[in-house]
Design a protein around this nucleic acid. Structure first.
Length: 598
RNA sequence: GCUCUGAUAGUUCAAUGGAUAGAAUAACUCUCUCCUAAAGAGUAGAUCCGGGUUCGAUUCCCGGUCGGAGUACCA
């Protein structure tokens, strides 16, 4: 790679000219800003003192040496302490010629023999349908998995379904009480929505009971515990744990409805899993680890019998691992499932895509795994993402401000259809093709909107303004791709074979716009690698946008098929083909499809 | 209270310690007889406040101000 060659040359030059020792990778190299002449820029300030030269002088001496050492560097100039290096056109031309026709440009092949990287995401509760927050989780999980795979990792996607517990019993109980045997079939309601309706129903009646008790003079805290519905739900949970057939049958039936509903939503979102874990199978795990921890002396038992981990030495609190009745808590289970997953896959790394409200939980989880002696504890990575906020704050199911996932997708599809109708460019497509196109565009807009934001940050979603299709959006990139493909198709009809390499000498000098596009293309592998290092699909989205923007600017004022010089024309078609492929590959990492036309 | 986290144009988002802080959107202009105008070009607009480290700070450190999250023998 040319970047490394330049860094190496700078390092060598520093050594030869001034006796300064620097590792090549520490040389600060950036792409040259467009207002200056050059392609790559070396920042020379760090060496000024040791070299005892002025920044200008140092830059000029380094520039001359680098030009001598690196064939591709054709020229240089120095502005203040910045050494700008120009790369010969022949290098860029050759790069395009060699890249055209490579379907996997920018992506590394995944190694199926490598130890897997296990990514857990989605992890829904089976008592209510998915909402916008889950959408962010699912899109991030899928996309990060694709991103790591694009960097050569052997990725396994897993989902741990939270299918048991008091919250599940609440829906079950409410359905028994108020449901009159309603089913997805009888009501025409999607299964997860139906169950969610009874979860809300429970809450409504529960609140009424609390109010009654408080009116009778009971303290509110006490009323919450004593409300008959709550007591009954707890009794149901106990029967569930005892394996009571009636409760288990109902549980199986209602969870089945929910799974059917989730499958539908996952399908529309385009996400999937290699393995699905169910908490009903894993909730007892972790207890033997607690015993091991006790034996090792890293955990301790209090007088009441509860078991704790003392993390005060790590600047944290004491953490409960077993209740005094011997039952496990969330952390206990997570210790168990981490070990299970590590063993199931022989995993190299465990990644958890979970919201940032769990930051503390995962900090503790890692610490305890380490204390238990698992050397892979530091391979546990919490991909913590921010909340999706509404203009007036958080989503609250009780206040009816939840943005439902299915509704949102449908809404996006309707908007996509309206946009297409307005443009009227697809009147010759069949209804099936149109439906497919609307879906692709709708999901493109939604996914890009979510994924272009740095995962760590909270983001805002305004339901009153529909997600945009213009500007820095998914459809903008999809449109750019469709336009390029149209050109390439026409070029092929004209008999141009863009896959034939060109002799660099046959092509005229690159225009500024051409070079801007080529440079951006050339950056793709680095951009993907750095996005993967940061677990950030947002960096991929930003890269794709830059590329599309740069291409559009080129497209606007450069003739391609109208170009009269044959070699120049072929080169431009090659450039188009490579950009289309690059856009397709980056969008695929985001889980976004790009249409051939729109 | 304690812990963590954030604050950049009117708004939504960018910026491995580097050059004049980038986009999009909203506002105001211009470009379809031309490879898809879902586009391109232009005008105007921002680093919360105060210190410090540095040749250089939106970025790192300290202190404020204002948000958000966590602080359950819930998950």
């Amino acid at each position: 790679m040319i970047e490394q060659n330049i860094q190496q040359a700078v390092s060598t030059a520093l050594k030869n000219l001034y006796g300064i020792d620097t590792a090549p990778e520490t040389v600060v190299l950036q792409t040259t800003k467009k207002e200056f002449e050059g392609d790559y820029t070396v920042v020379v300030f760090p060496y000024v003192k040791q070299a005892r030269k002025s920044p200008e002088q140092l830059g000029n001496e380094l520039g001359a040496k680098v030009k001598e050492l690196v064939d591709e560097v054709s020229d240089y100039n120095v502005v203040k302490g910045f050494l700008n290096l120009s790369v010969a056109d022949s290098y860029w031309l050759q790069f395009v010629s060699q890249t055209v026709g490579l379907p996997d440009y920018g992506l590394k092949a995944a190694d199926p023999a490598a130890k897997p990287v296990v990514v857990e995401y989605s992890s829904p509760n089976t008592n209510k349908p998915l909402h916008l927050g889950h959408i962010r989780n699912n899109l991030l999980g899928w996309s990060v998995s694709e991103l790591l795979a694009a960097n050569g990792a052997n990725v396994k996607k897993v989902n741990l379904v939270n299918d048991r517990g008091i919250h599940i019993c609440k829906s079950m109980l409410a359905w028994l009480r108020y449901g009159n045997g309603e089913t997805p079939e009888s009501s025409g309601m999607k299964g997860d929505h139906l169950v969610g309706k009874y979860y809300v129903e429970f809450d409504k009646h529960y609140k009424e009971e609390i109010k009654t008790l408080v009116d009778q003079g009971m303290e509110e805290e006490e009323a919450k515990k004593q409300a008959p519905l709550m007591l009954e739900a707890q009794a149901m949970l106990k029967r569930w744990e005892e394996g009571d057939k009636e409760v288990r049958d109902l549980w199986t039936k209602m969870n089945g409805w929910v799974y059917a509903g989730f499958d539908e939503t996952y399908r529309r979102l385009g996400v999937a899993f290699d393995k699905i874990y169910y908490e009903s199978n894993t909730y007892l795990l972790g207890k033997e680890l607690v015993q091991k921890g006790l034996d090792m002396g890293v955990l301790f038992r209090k007088e009441d019998g509860s078991v704790w981990c003392d993390l005060t030495g790590d600047g944290l609190d004491q953490k409960l691992l077993l209740r005094r009745d011997g039952t496990s808590v969330y952390m206990t289970q997570d210790l168990g499932t981490a070990l299970l997953r590590h063993n199931d896959f022989g995993a190299e790394q465990l990644i958890y895509v979970v919201g940032n409200e769990q930051d503390y939980h995962f900090k503790v989880l890692k610490l305890i795994l380490g204390k238990l002696g698992f050397e892979w504890a530091d391979k546990v990575y919490h991909l913590s993402y921010g909340m999706v906020e509404l203009p007036n704050g958080k989503m609250k199911s009780r206040e009816g401000t939840v943005v439902d996932a299915d509704d949102l997708i449908t809404e996006m599809e309707v908007t996509a259809e309206e946009m297409c109708r307005d443009h009227g460019k697809n009147d010759d497509m069949t209804p099936e093709q149109l439906k497919e196109l609307y879906h692709i565009l709708a999901l493109g807009a939604l996914k890009y909107f979510i994924l272009k934001v740095d995962p760590a940050k909270n983001m805002l979603f305004n339901p009153a303004e529909s997600i945009d299709f213009n500007g820095n959006t998914g459809p903008f990139i999809q449109y750019t791709h469709a336009r390029i493909r149209s050109i390439v198709r026409k070029a092929e009809e004209q008999g141009i074979d863009e896959t034939q390499p060109l002799a660099p000498s046959a092509v005229p000098t690159l225009t500024d716009k051409e070079k801007a596009v080529v440079r951006c293309l050339h950056d793709m592998p680095g951009a993907i690698a750095s996005a993967a290092d940061n677990f950030s699909p947002a960096m991929v989205a930003n890269y794709a946008y830059d590329l599309a923007k740069s291409f559009n600017s080129f497209y606007q004022d450069t003739p391609i098929l109208r170009e009269t010089d044959t070699a120049g024309k072929t080169f431009r078609v090659q450039l188009c083909a490579v950009v289309a492929q690059a856009l397709k590959n980056t969008m695929r990492i985001l889980g976004i499809e790009v249409p051939e036309r729109m």
